[in-house]
């Protein structure tokens, strides 16, 4: 019963958790920049405000795809938390990303297009790493099901530390953190794909960002197996690492990001795969 109940509760609370995480992150970030920062519940205030705005959109298809991005991302997260097949999860996540990219392309907005272009490049940057990661996990556990990973007593971290590092290197791309936030890049393309969403429709995209937090941190949690203490440690470490990285780096160009991700992160994941297959 517990195996189902906890994930279901997690799934239902995922936007809430993600929102809290985001709010907390904004505080931590502000403190790292020697500011006071917004209140913890700030993301939810934003949420409430966006709900009350006048409804405006560029056209219906664009707005609808934005909403479906949120829905499909939530679904991908649900499959992940319920212990589904990791490859399927990765592709469901790609599905949700692709809906957002399509939304970005569907307008005649320049920055939206540029953002979609860059988001597509980002997919190229992180997706191979994730797939290699999934296969490495398969080679250790004999199954692609994340359920088996959640329950295995031996944490993956000890067996595939390199893959964990690779994951840490690509996480900023997914979470749109400096130095790899090219897809969002406020100073360059003013938010990229999100640009044309407003009000209620932006809410979907904004909340989807929270879901992405939960998604990514769940991926990190995978490395701890059933060891919850270690898992919590990993989460805290990743959280601090991401914020420290965000606060100590400038944004690189999309080419540099691609080079780095495919050159370093992908190689690390590959070496890990080799080691796994040879031992």
């Amino acid at each position: 019963m517990n195996d189902v109940l906890i994930p279901v509760i997690l799934i239902l609370l995922a936007p809430l958790l993600g929102g809290l995480l985001y709010g907390f992150e904004r505080i931590v970030k502000a403190r790292m920049q020697r500011r006071i920062g917004p209140p913890l519940l700030q993301p939810f205030y934003d949420f409430l405000k966006l709900a009350g705005k006048r409804r405006m959109m560029v056209h219906s298809a664009h707005a609808f795809l934005g909403i479906m991005h949120f829905v499909s991302l939530w679904f991908a997260l649900a499959v992940l938390l319920l212990g589904g097949d990791l490859i399927l999860v990765i592709f469901l996540h790609l599905l949700s990303t692709s809906l957002l990219i399509l939304a970005g392309y569907s307008t005649r907005s320049i920055f939206s297009h540029l953002g979609a272009n860059r988001a597509a490049i980002s997919v190229l940057a992180y997706e191979p790493v994730l797939i290699i990661l999934a296969v490495s996990i398969f080679m250790l556990n004999g199954t692609f099901d994340t359920a088996a990973v959640f329950t295995s007593s031996e944490p993956l971290l000890y067996k595939m530390p390199l893959a964990f590092i690779a994951l840490l290197l690509v996480l900023p791309i997914k979470l749109k953190k400096s130095p790899f936030d090219v897809a969002e890049a406020h100073q360059e393309i003013t938010g990229g794909v999100e640009l044309e969403f407003s009000g209620l429709f932006y809410e979907a995209v904004y909340t989807a960002k929270w879901l992405d937090y939960v998604f990514c941190y769940t991926l990190v949690f995978l490395f701890a197996g059933s060891n919850i203490l270690l898992g919590a440690g990993l989460l805290v470490f990743t959280f601090l690492y991401l914020n420290a990285l965000d606060n100590s780096t400038a944004r690189v160009s999309y080419k540099q990001m691609l080079r780095f991700s495919l050159g370093v992160a992908f190689s690390l994941a590959f070496i890990n795969l080799l080691i796994n297959s040879l031992t």
Binding site: P39, L41, Q42, F44, Y45, D46, L48, K49, G52
Partner: peptide, 8 residues
């Protein structure tokens, strides 16, 4: 809840 809107 609506009163929290002005906080953002």
């Amino acid at each position: 809840l609506a009163s929290y809107r002005k906080k953002s």
